[in-house]
Write a protein that binds this DNA or RNA. Structure first.
Lengths: 209, 209
DNA sequence: ATAATATATGACTTGCCGGTCACATGACCA
DNA sequence: TGGTCATGTGACCGGCAAGTCATATATTAT
């Protein structure tokens, strides 16, 4: 937790510091991110930084909380009422939200991505623990429910599929940014719909198997 | 390229240096990997290291070549004659090889994984360029061919699917190591087959859509 | 105006990094 | 034996990192 001093700061100064820190952590993984660069870019003295935060760790966890909160804003309506849609529509909306987040908050998205890649490291684990139950568990419940509702066939490996659906969100975002567009546009729908078609029906010829 | 001095070294010494370097690059990303630690663990003087290699970069690229060669050993028979099987069997065999590589050469696999996560960074790009055409392009050709052979339905997004199949290899490996087993055992077949069932048929109930 | 308290500062410490270099050691040949 | 050349060595260099601290400057209460 940042020190009281940090929260006593005028809002614009606090905002600048956070903005600069976000840029730093988006550009470099934790170990390479530099407090020296952050204070230089934020225009504050190094000593001041340590009046605001315990240490580099403290700053990082604070930034991670901002990222988490922002991401939640994109998802919250979907997560809070997940059964208003059938599972495929829900996944569609979740993926679209994910891409939207990646496009509109690219720095935050970069930081998020690094966390998912480092699920085992001590620091990154602390982030995950403080956070929600994992997306993976969310999809597992969702799938089981969808099987009961006969939206999804019952002879699937639920654990594996939950894992795949979680991971493919990230894959889809990467694909979208790399091959479709840097901006949020109509292509997003097409890409997500292609993916959902695959998720529903696979790629085998009809009647096979 | 390592200097001539390195290749003049007795084989066991060369092997130790490489082994230690592999451990280092498996434990830390390039920027955090430490030449100091490597020379200490290998029991050589720092000056000696720079008799063998131009710099850290040089060592890393050499290690990457070893990793690439080793990985190729696991795949080569499949890649050289890709059309001896239908596409699903081929993907099955490729994925099994991938898991086998990850289980039997865990350090190499960790290094490989980091490369795929850093496709954009300058150094990691140099590795990719020196290497084969990407797995992604391989699967794209494969899919187009499978459509002609009517193994795969024709109304799919080939580019997207090629991307997904490539990425899901890594996802499957991660899932296998995390949830199924640390060793190579029978569970591997079951996991891969569950995945292929999904790839062929999707998860939707039959007749839906 | 004075005292007390909160905040700002940047030179400084310690530690590790990649890389260098003058010199030591050994191998081979005359 | 002495000379030449390849190899081994670790103290050393400049640079940057995280974090500290004595001191300076505001701000507030009295």
């Amino acid at each position: 937790m940042p020190k009281e001093t940090f929260f006593n700061l005028p809002e614009d100064k606090r905002t600048i510091i956070c903005q600069v820190a976000v840029d730093e952590f988006a550009a470099y993984p934790f170990e390479q991110a530099s407090i020296n660069r952050i204070v230089a870019n934020a225009g504050i003295a190094k000593g001041s930084f340590y009046q605001y935060f315990e240490d580099k760790n403290d700053l990082f966890l604070h930034i991670m909380q901002l990222v988490g909160e922002e991401k939640l804003k994109y998802m919250s309506s979907l997560i809070q009422a997940p059964y208003q849609y059938d599972i495929f529509t829900l996944i569609r909306e979740l993926y679209i939200s994910g891409i939207q987040f990646a496009v509109e908050r690219p720095q935050y998205a970069k930081i998020s991505k690094r966390i998912l890649e480092n699920k085992n490291s001590a620091l990154y684990q602390e982030v995950m623990n403080s956070n929600m139950p994992t997306a993976y568990e969310f999809f597992e419940v969702l799938l089981k429910n969808a099987i009961v509702k006969k939206e999804v066939r019952e002879n699937i490996n639920v654990k594996l599929l939950a894992h795949l659906i979680t991971s493919m969100n990230a894959v889809l975002i990467e694909y979208y940014l790399e091959h479709v567009s840097q901006d949020y546009d109509e292509g997003i729908m097409e890409t997500v719909d292609h993916f959902l078609d695959f998720l529903k029906n696979g790629i085998g010829v009809n009647g096979t198997e």
